[in-house]
Amino acid sequence: MSIQEICRAASNTRLGEGLYQLVLDAPQIAAAAQCGQFVHIACGEGNLLRRPISICEAGEGRLRIVFQVKGSGTEWLADRKEGDTLDVLGPLGHGFDTAALGARPVLIGGGIGVPPMLQAAKCAKAAGAAPRAVLGFRNRGAVILEEDFRAVCETFVTTDDGSYARHGFVTDVLQELVADATGVAACGPKPMLKAIAAIAKQAGLPCQVSMEERMGCGIGACLVCACALKAENGETRYGHVCKDGPVFNAEEVEW
C-alpha cells in the first residue's frame, strides 16, 4: 500500500561530513513500513524528481531516515528544519524477509547502506532471532549508527583505511561468521553486495541484497530503475528496484 503523506520534520541532525538524520512525523507511513522499504521524498521546487531514501527506523508514528548529501535534492533535504513539512510517498518497495534468514542472520551494511539494516536487525530480533551486524565504512568520519546497532545486537565495525575499529572489509568479517550463520542480508555498494552474495552462495546460505538504481516514479510505473535479473529460461530479464526490490534474493540478480 503506497501512501502520500505530508510529514512534519521532528528533527534534523548532522551525523558527520555530509551525513544527516531526519526524523519525520509520519503516522500512516510509519504504521505500514516494513524493514528494507524506502520513502520517496519531494525535494523542493528545483528538483523535479523525488529522492528515494531507505527507512532506517519506523515506529511510534515516526520515521527515521539517514542520508548522505550527493546532489541538489539531498542538499535541500539536509537544509530542513524542525517544523518544516515534507511531501513523502511510502512505504515503497519490497523489503527484507527476515524470517527467511533463520535464527542467526548476519546483517551487513556498507557506508550509506548501513541505515536500513538497523530496522532489519530490530525486526529479526523481535521475531526471536539472534542477528549479528557487520558495518563497513570508508574511514572514521563516515561511521554512523554504531551505538544504535550495539543496542540491538552483536556488532562488528570495519573501516577501509583502518582509521577506526577493524582495518578491512565487511567481507573479511563475514568469512569468519558464515560457519554458524543461517542467512545473510546486505545493503551497500554493488561490488560489496556481489562479494557478499558469492560468500553466501559458497556457504549455502540464503542471501538478500538491497539494490540501488537511478529512479523515477518510485512506484513501478515508469520502469526506469531496471535491475538485471536471471530469468527462468536462463536469460536476462529486468526487474525494477522500486517495486520488485529494492531487496532481491541474491541468487536472482545478474551480477
Binding site: 537511478r214 529512479m215 530503475c225 531496471a226
Partner: peptide
Amino acid sequence: LGNPAPRIAE
C-alpha cells in the same frame, strides 16, 4: 526487455 540501466537522468 528494454534497455539496461541507467534509464533516467534528471
